[in-house]
Amino acid sequence: MSSVADPRAAVALVAQLLAEGAITLPIKARYAIDDVATAYDRLAERHGLGKIVLQVGTGI
């Protein structure tokens, strides 16, 4: 017997846990959308823990 998780439910659960602060997502760097080329250069280095975040608007 095989069980397969519904990916939508899994994403919803992770989003809920993030919103509640039950889990955290490490962020390595944040870049304004105008600095997308710099963000991609940093991403290409492929080392270190954390996500590269592009800020769109003022919500971050």
Rank of each mutant, 00 (worst) to 15 (best):
M1Q: 10
M1S: 13
S2A: 05
S2I: 04
S2H: 15
S3G: 08
S3C: 08
V4Q: 08
A5M: 13
A5I: 12
D6L: 00
D6F: 02
D6Y: 02
D6N: 02
P7L: 07
P7M: 05
P7C: 03
A9Q: 11
A9S: 13
A10T: 07
A10K: 14
V11P: 02
A12N: 07
A12H: 07
A12R: 12
L13S: 05
L13K: 10
V14L: 15
V14K: 04
V14T: 14
A15Q: 10
A15K: 11
Q16G: 09
Q16V: 06
Q16P: 02
Q16A: 15
L17I: 12
L17E: 03
L18E: 08
A19N: 08
A19R: 15
A19I: 08
A19M: 11
E20R: 12
E20S: 06
E20Y: 04
E20G: 10
G21I: 07
G21W: 09
G21E: 11
A22K: 15
A22T: 15
A22P: 02
I23P: 03
I23Q: 04
I23R: 13
I23M: 10
T24Y: 05
L25R: 11
L25Q: 11
P26R: 06
P26G: 04
P26W: 07
I27C: 06
I27R: 10
I27K: 05
I27D: 01
K28F: 01
K28P: 00
A29L: 01
A29H: 01
A29F: 00
R30Y: 12
R30V: 11
R30M: 05
R30S: 08
R30H: 08
Y31N: 04
Y31E: 02
Y31F: 15
A32G: 09
A32M: 09
A32K: 09
I33K: 12
D34P: 00
D35S: 15
V36L: 06
V36R: 13
V36H: 14
A37K: 15
A37E: 09
A37I: 10
A37C: 06
T38E: 09
T38I: 14
A39M: 06
A39S: 04
Y40F: 15
D41N: 14
D41I: 09
D41G: 11
D41T: 13
D41S: 10
R42T: 07
R42K: 09
L43N: 08
L43D: 12
A44L: 06
A44D: 07
A44W: 04
A44R: 13
E45P: 01
R46M: 12
R46T: 10
R46C: 03
R46E: 13
H47M: 11
H47Q: 13
H47C: 04
H47K: 13
G48P: 00
G48C: 03
G48T: 01
L49D: 01
L49M: 06
G50L: 08
K51T: 00
K51S: 02
K51H: 08
K51D: 00
I52G: 00
I52N: 00
V53H: 02
V53F: 03
V53A: 03
V53I: 13
V53Y: 00
V53W: 01
L54R: 12
L54W: 04
Q55P: 03
Q55K: 15
Q55G: 05
Q55W: 05
V56A: 10
V56W: 05
G57I: 03
G57R: 03
T58S: 15
T58M: 05
G59L: 03
I60Q: 12
I60M: 09
I60A: 08
I60Y: 14
